[in-house]
Design a protein around this nucleic acid. Structure first.
Lengths: 150, 150
DNA sequence: GTTAGTGCAAATTTTTTGCATCGGT
DNA sequence: ACCGATGCAAAAAATTTGCACTAAC
């Protein structure tokens, strides 16, 4: 996989720098991470890197198809490794919590869209917003009442 | 519907100002709009409004459940009226184009998630990223082939 | 008349860019 | 040695906030 990065870079006449490897490793390790979190992680490891380089590198890695990003909350893009298992992101609007769900649910949707309008969906980039089970239960009076009666 | 806004505001001890009506109207009229586009639209109409007020008002309208927003592209939240027909947003990563698709596809996914993990998805807030039919055909014949074979 | 809401300008936060220097090839 | 990549600091966006003034109720 480290070779995958080097090859991709060299193939484009670009250079395999430690920063690029470290950013990719950080995205891998963190699972979901904002550019700032990636930067902190790399610096904490031991290496020096600037936030500018993180931005530039994430953009590059995305072009290379090694990472993707999703907008999980207001103005905070989060990056994921392509190698990680595919999953959907469920973002709760009430508590801000994040949970993951199996990507298979998304595949049916993606397949339907491809068949109907030819749009090829990147399931790894799928973020769903709504209300998680806990918040839905807490805030829906009817449901809460039914439960407390039991 | 104008009454819906007034009632919602008065019920909370808030005031029905022309700016609030105009922001809601603008979101309605524009379909998808960033805060800045909303501001321009209101100002073009004839009224004075500041960008600060647009931000504050959009946040308020979202709390009231009259608008929702989705992150269609990097760092640019777009707001939609709740009254508009539900639809999915298909964002092409290659050309940046935006197309809509019927929300019924999303409903199956939403239903599956609700049944499995109790997460209540807001389908209006659903943005899918990928490659549109035109770009898929033009830029990645190999990938398109691989996918259609699957 | 009260008090929430607005506009403006300043403060934050987030992301991009210019340029001299460093380092991979 | 060559030229792409980095770091830093400044610039550009994007969003939030403080405060005096306006206007809805």
């Amino acid at each position: 996989m480290a070779e995958q990065l080097s090859d991709a870079l060299h193939g484009r006449g670009m250079r395999a720098t430690p920063q690029r490897r470290q950013v990719l490793d950080a995205v891998d390790a963190l699972g979901h991470a904002t550019p700032e979190q990636v930067c902190e992680h790399v610096q904490r490891a031991h290496a020096g890197i600037s936030l500018s380089t993180v931005y530039r590198t994430l953009e590059l890695l995305e072009e290379l198809g090694l990472v993707t990003h999703a907008h999980l909350e207001h103005g905070a893009p989060t990056y994921h490794s392509v190698q990680a298992h595919e999953h959907l992101h469920l973002v709760c609007r009430e508590c801000g919590g994040l949970q993951e769900a199996d990507a298979s649910h998304g595949h049916a949707l993606a397949e339907a869209l491809r068949a109907e309008v030819g749009f090829v969906t990147d399931v790894r980039h799928l973020a769903l917003h709504g209300t998680c089970a806990r918040c839905a239960g807490r805030e829906a009076p009817a449901l809460a009442g039914a439960l407390s009666r039991a």
